[in-house]
Amino acid sequence: MDFSIQKKEKDSGRKHFAAAIIGSGPAGLTAAIYLGRSKVETVVFEKVIPGGYVVNVEKIENYPGFVEGIAGEQLGKLYAKHAEKFGAEIKCEEVTKLELNETPFRILTSLGSYTSDSIILATGTSNRKLGIPGEEEFTHKGISFCATCDAPFFEGENVIVVGAGNSGAQESLYLSRFAKHITIVELLEFPTAEPILIDRLNENERIDLLTSHSVTSFNGDKLLSSVDIKDIKSGEIKNIKVKGAFIYAGEVPNNDLVKDALKLDDKGFIVTDERLRTSIGGVFAAGDVRNTPLRQVATSVGDGAIAGHEAYRFLEERK
């Protein structure tokens, strides 16, 4: 059992900051490091725990410098420690509303309200839902979006994973330590995970990959007991008995706070220029929540550096 702790610096009690970062994933905390080194009074708001979604990833193997990989939870802690070292204040409060129509910008949270001269949005993404019968009914009653949270409930059971991208592949490999058998259902004719992950799926006796198939319904009484899956090519529908389903079929941006205020692309991602400026001056976006061709820890870190630097420039130019 692990008994390590996420250290937290003291609350300054300040209600106004020069820079506020919403989201403490790799993008948000990198921005905090850059702003902190520029001596900008910076706050980072996080609704779960510092590190953002990365803490759900058992092992990150493609982030440079960590040759043997690093646990997402560990990386999240390091990012937070690094940001706090340079003075950023991390508050575990959920931002519930942003008022961006005048400066300083107003930030309402689950515990209070704050103002800030600049904002960096690093709110990331959530797993996309499938929108099929039974999904709402059996969410949290067999359907899960977090393998590290819920895998132990499916010890010795059959489960499906929807989506054979990197997330689906990684989570299937993690689930294979608990579940008796895992069927990965992928809509496309081929898995989109990195080839190294596909090799591992193929080598794992507990995992089967079904391409060109889609899930058409989740079934059960009070808990999930089966899924219907359709062969895209033949149209045949099969019923598979499963106790659990984990959905990793793409992402949707966490844009609720700004969807009526900022320019978004057709999928809802925040539109930025190359300096990560949004459609409102002083508001920047970084990481997975913006329109970017690749969503990885490494690209988020790069975004965080640019957004932090640009927010600093913005604040300097206003002086």
């Binding site: 609704k47 779960v48 959920e94 519930t96 689950s110 515990l111 969410t139 949290h140 009653k141 067999g142 359907i143 899960s144 977090c146 949270c149 819920d150 409930f153 499916f154 009070k222 808990l223 999930l224 106790k243 659990g244």
Partner: peptide, 24 residues
């Protein structure tokens, strides 16, 4: 209590709800 996903909150050993929510 049919817990298969967490956090799962049970009130007075009867009804429940799911998720990490702000206090209000």
């Amino acid at each position: 209590h049919r817990v298969s996903s967490v956090p799962h909150i049970i009130i007075n050993d009867r009804n429940g709800f799911m998720g990490n929510l702000p206090p209000s």
